[in-house]
Amino acid sequence: MSILHTVNKSPFERSNLDSCLNHATKGDAILLIEDAVYAAMKAGTFAARMTDAAKQFKVCVLGPDLQARGVDPAGVIDGVAVVDYAGFVDLAAESNAVNAWL
């Protein structure tokens, strides 16, 4: 059993990511989309938390949403995979359910 969690809000604005990390269980995947992509960056106060999360969960970030925001994929935290929409579909298909942390 595993769940794909999607998070779409900047962690600087909302608690969605925090709540997601508090409820994800071993083997789950977390995909950062839309304004949540900022949480995937090495620079910034969330980096330590996300680096840690990437050790427990399969953490991914949506490449097109990084590019749209002018964020260099090279700055993404080690252990966080950059995926495209096809990768998003694969993650959803591989999981038993998808929980969008809205």
Binding site: E34, D35, P64, D84, A86, F88, V89, A93
Partner: peptide, 19 residues
């Protein structure tokens, strides 16, 4: 919100993959 765009692009990608 970006929600509808994201949903549309997800749907398109799923269809392209044969889902």
């Amino acid at each position: 919100h970006q929600a509808s765009d994201s949903a549309y692009l997800f749907a398109k990608a799923a269809l392209e993959k044969g889902h």
